[in-house]
């Protein structure tokens, strides 16, 4: 794609300040949309209805989807709000706020569907949709993970396979970071 005003607009984007952010398969489009919307929702000055109320409602929907509680009808509501915000907001902030949502819904809709139907985040970015497990095959029982766990839910004795109590795990990822044998898996 050519980087110019026209082609960018066609793809549902804008030139903005000219910056470009490169994302990969390891990024979750729903999470990215949420990230940008969090910014615009906070920056909304609050003067006009669609931006003030609309960004808040869209953010609520995205939070619902990324936490695995989404329903397919949420996508229609999201799209409807995004268009409303784009078409009726008073200034450029509100009009551009839903761009990430609209273009990701257009080009990466399947990612949203995956979050809603399969309750899965392929990029493993949406914390509510992932869990940490210790592989019985790889864990050598080095015990490093256990003292690093803030909720003390990683347990096991020396030289034996450790386990995570899923009910108490807050998904902080500490064990994942500290395990030198890659025995902790994000699934």
């Amino acid at each position: 794609m050519e980087v110019d005003f026209g082609p960018l607009a066609k793809a549902g984007s804008i030139m903005g300040s000219g910056g470009m952010i490169v994302l990969s398969e390891e990024d979750c489009m729903v999470d990215i949309s949420k990230f940008y919307l969090t910014f615009t929702q906070e920056e909304s000055c609050g003067k006009c209805t669609p931006c003030r109320e609309g960004t808040t409602r869209m953010l609520e929907i995205l939070e619902k989807v990324t936490s695995g509680k989404g329903e397919m009808s949420d996508l229609d509501r999201l799209e409807r709000l995004a268009k409303l915000c784009q078409q009726t907001s008073l200034c450029g902030l509100g009009r551009a706020a839903p761009n990430p949502i609209l273009s990701s819904l257009k080009h990466f809709r399947e990612e949203y569907v995956e979050h809603i139907v399969d309750k899965k985040c392929a990029a493993k970015k949406c914390v509510a949709l992932i869990k940490y497990e210790i592989s019985a095959d790889t864990c050598i029982g080095c015990t490093v993970c256990a003292p690093n766990c803030p909720t003390e839910c990683t347990t096991g004795t020396r030289k034996e396979v450790h386990v995570i109590d899923q009910d108490r795990c807050v998904k902080c990822g500490q064990c994942f970071e500290v395990c030198r044998f890659d025995a902790v898996e994000r699934v």
Binding site: K47, C48, T49, P50, Q86, Q87, T88, S89, L90, R95
Partner: peptide
Amino acid sequence: EGACRVCVTQVKGFNHFLT
């Protein structure tokens, strides 16, 4: 004020709506 946006109308040639 142009704040509520309830008075939007569609004007030929514009993608967004005008109050």
